[in-house]
Amino acid sequence: MVSLQEQLMKAGLVDKKKVQKVNQDKTKQKKEERRTGQQSVDEAKLAAAELQRKNAERAREFNAQRDAAANEKAVQAQIAQLVQKNRQPKAAKGAGEIAYNFTYGAKIERIYVSAAVQEHLVAGRLAIVGMGDQFELVPRVIADKIAERDEARVVRAKAAATPMEDDPYADFKIPDDFTW
């Protein structure tokens, strides 16, 4: 098969010097492309690297979310286990028991306890832990461990406020067993 250059030479449209000049220019151009091609970054490679970086970042974010959800689930399981192992008995309604009111979140809740349990709650030896829509009594040490994991679940009895120096009602103390 005869090349296009040879056909043009036979036809007399180009001479041998022009063919050599074109070949030299092509060779120079290829050398230049090889030399500068190593220094310049290929756009396709750059785009592929950027896409790979974005995919890796998205995968890291997804893994972090998955790990955070797994950690939260593990913490909730630890809290449930602590409460199940250490919960204290509370009294049932209607058996001459006392209603103990406390605030949980933005609501005022009520549980029925015996007089001894009420004393322990007021003294701070027992604490109330919210488990969904139920409330359990646990020792203060266990409540501290639960509070390390999730502070919002633990309800503690508030200590009596210290009276102000010029309080006109300082002589009138409110009893602990007073119910509104």
Rank of each mutant, 00 (worst) to 15 (best):
S114T: 12
K173D: 02
K21G: 06
A69L: 11
A44G: 10
M9D: 02
R34L: 14
G37C: 07
Q20N: 12
R87F: 13
V117D: 11
V154M: 07
I79D: 04
E72C: 04
L13Q: 09
A56C: 00
A127W: 01
G105V: 09
D167N: 13
K10E: 15
A11L: 15
V122M: 03
I128P: 03
V129T: 04
V141M: 07
D25Y: 03
F62P: 00
Y169R: 03
A157C: 08
V14Y: 09
Q78W: 03
G12N: 07
R35H: 08
A161P: 00
D150M: 06
V41N: 02
D144L: 01
E33L: 14
A127K: 10
M9Q: 13
A56M: 06
N23I: 08
A159Q: 11
A74E: 11
Q76F: 09
Q84I: 08
K18P: 02
A68H: 06
Q7V: 09
D15T: 08
Q84M: 08
A49S: 08
D133C: 00
G130M: 05
A106G: 10
A48P: 04
E32P: 01
Q84W: 04
E165R: 02
K90A: 14
G37H: 10
D176N: 06
R58H: 01
Q38E: 13
V154S: 06
V83A: 15
V138Y: 09
N71C: 05
W180Y: 04
D167W: 03
D150F: 00
V154D: 05
G132S: 07
A44N: 10
E151T: 04
T179K: 12
N71Q: 15
A47P: 01
W180S: 09
A95W: 06
I174W: 01
